[in-house]
Amino acid sequence: MKVEATSDLAATANPSAARTISMGKAIAYFAFSLVINSAGNVLTLVTSAKIHPSFLGAAYWTAAEANLGTAFHWNLFWAFLIMGFLTAVLNAVLMHHWSWKRIIGNMVFMVPFSALIQVFEDFFMGSYPTLFGGLPDARSTGMVIFYVFLNFVGVALIATAISIYQRVNLVLHPADDLMQILRFRYFKGQAAKAMWVSYIPPTLMAIVAIIVTRQFTNFGLGTIFAFVAQGGITGIADKWVFPKLKHQALDVGKPTDND
């Protein structure tokens, strides 16, 4: 973990204060990352649901938000949107500065992201039978292995998407904005510490959901894989996916005497 943190810091220690790519390119990169992020999140959820008994689980934030949605009878759109907004508020507290521009940016991300989550869930669950009948339940060892593979692919898609839109830094998912703020404002660029601390909010979400539903779902092997490997995959994607795309203007607020 220390090697990874040092490597990540070296790659982003001096991000450009100005944008070096056009707005058109930034929007194109962002749109692409939004689609693959949404697809990856839903793949982790659906593959987990199709194995009985379920042991895969979804990516960490995804699992927590899905469980909280179940607890309060929200569909995925509202679960992701509401928790995204609350995380954006937390980010403002951590920065000691309320920025409507940043909050709106987080919501600009969350609205199409949450909508795409619902679209991909409907697609993979078979709600559009003329296009795709949906992923069937895993009824053989081969299908179970294939779904484990798809689950890990979903995690890789999420990690790759994070790499792209964090480098673009146009608007961010509130959870990734949280990790970035923690990393550069509170942990002197140490990615590992920032990542672990950024998992506190979804952990609290999951605890609330378990208390309400008395069920422990959407957490499993895939969640562990995401917890351990997602940051590393993001670092790899920084180097190999659109390698000419460099980190753009970083803003984590001005330091104060209390920081």
Rank of each mutant, 00 (worst) to 15 (best):
N75K: 07
P202E: 07
G154N: 06
I164S: 00
V144T: 02
E4L: 08
V153S: 04
R185E: 02
F227M: 11
F242D: 01
L81N: 03
L245K: 08
M110P: 01
N151E: 10
F184A: 03
V111S: 00
H247W: 08
L56A: 09
T62H: 09
S127V: 05
E121M: 15
L131I: 15
I210C: 06
N14W: 05
H96W: 05
G222S: 07
L204Y: 02
G126L: 00
F80H: 13
H173W: 06
Y128V: 02
N218W: 11
S38M: 03
P202R: 07
T70W: 12
A92T: 01
W98V: 13
D176Y: 07
V208W: 02
V93A: 10
L34D: 02
N41S: 13
T20Y: 04
H96T: 06
N37S: 10
V171N: 01
I36V: 14
V212R: 10
T234F: 03
L221H: 06
K101L: 07
L178C: 05
A18L: 11
L43H: 00
A175R: 02
F123T: 05
G231W: 00
D257H: 12
V208K: 06
P174C: 07
A17Q: 04
T256S: 09
F72W: 13
V197N: 09
I207R: 09
F216R: 04
W78Q: 11
S7V: 12
G40N: 07
H247F: 10
A79H: 06
K254N: 15
I210E: 01
V119T: 07
P53W: 13
S127R: 09
I233E: 04
M110C: 12
G126Q: 00
V119N: 03
Q180M: 13
A26C: 10
A58S: 15
G105A: 02
V212E: 05
